[in-house]
Amino acid sequence: MNGDGAMSSDSTLSTGGAVKKARRMKLPAPNAIVGGTLIGILLATACIGALWTPYDPLKLSFREKLVAPSALHWLGTDEFGRDVLSRLMAGAATSVWISILTVTLAVIAGTTIGLFSGYMRGWTDRIIMAFNDALLAFPGILLALGLLAVVGANKYGIIVALGIAYTPSVARVVRGTVLSLREREFIAASRVMGNSEGFTMARHILPNCIAPLTVLATSMFGYVLLAESALSFLGLGVPPPAPTWGNMLAGSRPYIGQAVWLGIFPGLCISLTLLGINLLGDAVRDRLDPRMRGSR
């Protein structure tokens, strides 16, 4: 009776499995397509912008200042006659690079702290988290401002300042996930197997943190892009004349009445990038989680 019972339930299930396998072959989800396209364009622009731009983004040309978009200058020129398209492309490289490095820094630092704190619990956890919460109490941008004053306003200063400013939120999320995971029976199973704490963390806890981390990292990428723009806007970012989307947006302010394209194009770039990242983040999370596969 054991045999035939198992067979009947198994056979119904294997057809279910086949259906799921077939579904996996389907086209990617629409959010993956739109998000992927937007981010693809951004990355391509950043790569090209780092190597080649139609004009020199730094070259001043007072005869051509505040020229409206035309065949010669597709997106017009700014108050110093610099080509907006070239500056956007060069700025994309800087902004993307800063954001990627910042998010990487915050995720690595935050994950390490969160894993350690959540797995150790007790006093270690309390002290780390008290410190963490104190940092969280400051708005990220304020913390970054303070840190920038210490490390100095340049590209790497921004990365370090923003990276540190965003670490506490990663640590919080990872710790929370670890706390709920470590009560699950598969962690106990791993310990009963004789696995060391380190192996258990690396093999069972860390991979299960990836889904929330992906979502957090993508939304953070957007925030960092914004924060970097805001810092540049406040004049504490990448020092001029090097273009970033933030200082371009900042620089457009006095001319908003006469040269609307100066503000619109950098702003549009920031918005579209954020949209793309969020869509892609959702898609990546679904893809990484085996439970979500085939359920769409």
Binding site: E185, F186, A188, A189, N208
Partner: peptide, 17 residues
Amino acid sequence: LNCQMVFQDPYSSLDPR
């Protein structure tokens, strides 16, 4: 190595990943 355990809840005792 010689002592193993089977847990109550089959939904949480297997690593979903």
